[in-house]
């Protein structure tokens, strides 16, 4: 009698565990696929690479017109924690892959060169 009761209890425990696991799987499926967390108020650093490249192109176009490098750096900083130069270089690579026109690429390169020029020059060691 005791053995039967113990067997019944372990069976119930097994089914209880299976029910919990099943519920967890259903919950995760619902939370990830059916109704995932929605990001509606995102920042520019979360933009897809092609949108980032277009953003950098806009900054380069504005810089080509007004020559305001500080403002260009400020705008580029919105695209992430990387340095504006790094962001521009990544955007140039994306733009090349996407087949941007030579004219657009030229503007981005000019911006990249201007950013490069702001970096401290490596000190030359004199003997």
């Amino acid at each position: 009698m005791k053995r039967r009761r113990a067997s019944s209890r372990s069976k119930r425990f097994l089914w209880f565990t299976i029910a919990i696991l099943l519920g967890a799987v259903l919950g995760m499926l619902y939370g990830w696929l059916v109704n995932p967390v929605r990001y509606v108020d995102t920042a520019p650093d979360m933009l897809r690479a092609d949108y980032k490249a277009d953003y950098v192109l806009m900054v380069a176009e504005v810089y080509a017109k007004d020559g305001d490098l500080a403002m260009a750096q400020f705008r580029l900083a919105r695209l992430g924690a990387e340095s504006p130069l790094r962001i521009t270089q990544s955007a140039i690579l994306t733009a090349k892959e996407l087949g941007y026109s030579q004219q657009d690429l030229q503007k981005m390169v000019q911006l990249s060169e201007a950013l490069q020029a702001t970096l401290p020059q490596s000190t030359q060691i004199t003997p």
Partner: peptide, 22 residues
């Protein structure tokens, strides 16, 4: 008890999917 288990699992799954690893 099966329903209770299912509900506990469901809640744990949602907490994981929405809060711990969204």
């Amino acid at each position: 008890y099966l329903l209770t288990g299912l509900i506990i699992g469901l809640i744990s799954g949602l907490i994981y999917a929405w809060l711990l690893d969204p």
